[in-house]
Computed example of a mutant assay.
Amino acid sequence: MDDNAQFLAAARDLLEREGVSVVGVASSTVQALRQADALRPEVALIDVELGDESGFDLARRLADRPDPVRVVLISTYSEDDLDELVQTSPAVGFLSKRDVSRRAIDALLAGR
C-alpha cells in the first residue's frame, strides 16, 4: 500500500516481471483492509507514511486479524531513521523503496 500512484505502478510492474503475483494495490487504509479481506494476500508492502494515515497503524491492524497478513514496511527514509518504530511493529522487516524486489522480500520472509 502506498499513497503514491507512480510508485504503486512501478513496484507492481517490477514485482510482476520478477514473477511475483501482485493480487492488489491500495492507496488508503480503507482500501487495504477491504482488499486484505477479499484477496487474502500472503504479504503486504506498506509505506510507513500514508499522507494522513500511518503505515505502522495499518501494519498492526493487518497483523491483529484472525487471518494475519505478513507485512513488509517500505519507505523513502532509511532504515536507520525508522529502526525503533520498525522493531516495535509487527512487520517482518523493512525495505527502502529503492530496494524493493522479489529477492529482498523473499530474504525478509526467510528471516535473513
Rank of each mutant, 00 (worst) to 15 (best):
P90R: 08
A44T: 06
L58N: 06
S21R: 11
L73R: 03
Q87R: 14
V72D: 01
E84C: 04
A26L: 13
E53F: 12
R12G: 02
L73G: 01
A38I: 08
S78E: 15
K97T: 13
A44C: 08
D52H: 15
P41W: 12
R34F: 09
R103H: 08
A59V: 06
V72Q: 02
Q31N: 10
D83F: 05
R12K: 15
P66R: 12
L73C: 04
L14I: 15
S96V: 07
R60I: 02
Q35C: 14
E84Y: 04
G19M: 04
R102N: 09
T29E: 12
V23P: 04
A11C: 14
F94Q: 04
R17P: 02
V22T: 08
E18V: 14
E79T: 05
L15I: 13
V71W: 00
L33V: 11
S28H: 09
D67P: 02
R40P: 01
V20C: 02
R65Y: 00
E53K: 13
P41K: 07
R61Y: 05
L73M: 02
L62V: 06
D81F: 01
A9D: 11
R12Y: 05
S96I: 00
G19Y: 07
L73D: 00
V30H: 13
E53D: 15
V71L: 02
K97F: 11
K97R: 13
F56R: 03
L15P: 04
D57V: 14
G93N: 08
V92R: 10
A11E: 02
E42F: 08
L45P: 03
P90Y: 10
E16Q: 15
V20T: 01
E84H: 00
E53V: 14
L85D: 07
T88V: 12
S27N: 11
L45Q: 02
R40F: 07
G93I: 08
R70S: 10
S101P: 14
S75F: 07
D57R: 13
G55Y: 08
A11Y: 04
S27F: 01
E79P: 03
A59F: 00
L15F: 07
E16H: 06
V43P: 01
L73V: 01
D37Q: 15
V71F: 00
P66A: 12
E84N: 01
L85K: 06
V92D: 04
K97I: 13
Q87N: 11
P66M: 06
S75R: 00
D64H: 04
A59M: 05
E16V: 07
L50S: 05
L39F: 13
R98P: 00
